[in-house]
Amino acid sequence: MEFKTKAIIKEILEPFNIISCVYEGDGGLVYGLKTKKYPGNQYQVAFRSELDALKMPSSNIYHGCGHDAHTASLIAYIAYLQKIKFQEYNILFVFQSSEESGNGAASIVQELVRRDIHVEKIFGIHNAPEISVNDIAVSTGQILANNYTNRLLIRLNQDKFNNLGELSVLEVLVQSIQSLLNKGIYCQIGELTTNGQTGIHADYMCLTLSFRSDKQKLNDLVLNFDELINILKKQTGVQDIQVENVNRHWKIKNDPVISKRIAQTGLFNVLEIPESLSSDDFCYYQYLVGQVCYLFIGSYASEKKSTIHSDSFEINNDFFKQIMKLYIQVLQEA
């Protein structure tokens, strides 16, 4: 839904004759740099940035995860390639929507497949406000976590409830979540709303339920979620449950050769990507591309302005200098 963001990107990139628009739609924007050496639909390298924002608890719509910084730096990189008149090989630039919610990478992959576009290598570079701008974090093999998040609409029949009403549904949710924690599955309830009022029970509940794990497989998260839904459907007073998938992410598998090359550049202090409950729909590009590499570059600003996914998030301006060095180095190593 970030129409203004897309319009700004288009306006800035319009004068650059080194690129042309490959795709524009709900999935975002994709531009291609084509050379005479490779006249077909084969792109040797692709870069993904995200253009989506988040609705904060304050109700502000805000790029509180630094996606605007990712977009800005990729635009700057295109400007750099225009300046040096780069013509070595074909490059794809992806400005993708719906990374935070909606599996946006899946729609981009579908569009590229439909256009018979082939990509050999793709890079996803994300800012990391917990580490210095002199640091990058990159690892070989599987990274990040599996994530299965759904939006639930639970319709209630108050005539069949006891005095607890919709609270009995929440009680079952809490009990189930506690048992899942023992299995190594982290659960989070978000966007919880009802049409209940003071003295009046609700006849529906709407919430998001997120299952994440860096240990359990994605299929295990799906099975546990389905089991929980079946338990809830059997509860007295639950009339119906509608499920809408929000995110379905699996662990990203970094190419070992590319990851090692980037780690050995000598331009940055290199860290390993730690185990975490973070996930990213960048995993969908593995359907399209033979070699993928997802890494982090530091964006630490200060104690008060480095909390990601918050209204106070602010990028360190030195991030832009460092990521340009990284882009240039990545292209050489790729």
Rank of each mutant, 00 (worst) to 15 (best):
E2R: 05
F3T: 12
I9N: 06
K10W: 07
I18P: 10
I18D: 07
C21Q: 11
G27M: 14
G40Y: 03
N41F: 00
Q44K: 15
V45I: 14
R48T: 09
T71C: 09
S73M: 13
L74K: 05
Y80H: 13
L81H: 05
F86G: 01
Q87R: 15
V94W: 15
E99N: 13
E100D: 12
N103W: 07
Q110N: 11
R114W: 02
F123T: 06
H126C: 02
H126N: 02
A137I: 15
V138R: 03
A145M: 03
Y148Q: 04
I154H: 00
N157H: 06
Q158D: 14
D159N: 12
F161Q: 12
N162Y: 11
E166A: 09
E166G: 12
L173H: 01
V174R: 02
Q175V: 14
S176N: 07
S176P: 01
I177V: 13
Y186C: 10
T198K: 15
I200G: 07
L209N: 00
S210C: 13
L221P: 00
L221T: 00
N224A: 03
N224I: 01
N224V: 01
E227M: 04
L228M: 15
V238L: 12
Q239F: 13
Q242M: 06
D255M: 11
A263M: 10
Q264D: 15
Q264G: 08
G266T: 06
F268N: 03
L271M: 13
D280E: 13
D281T: 03
F282P: 01
V292L: 10
Y294M: 14
L295Q: 03
I308W: 04
S310I: 07
S310K: 05
F313H: 00
N316D: 12
N317A: 14
F319G: 09
Y327F: 15
V330Y: 04
E333F: 14
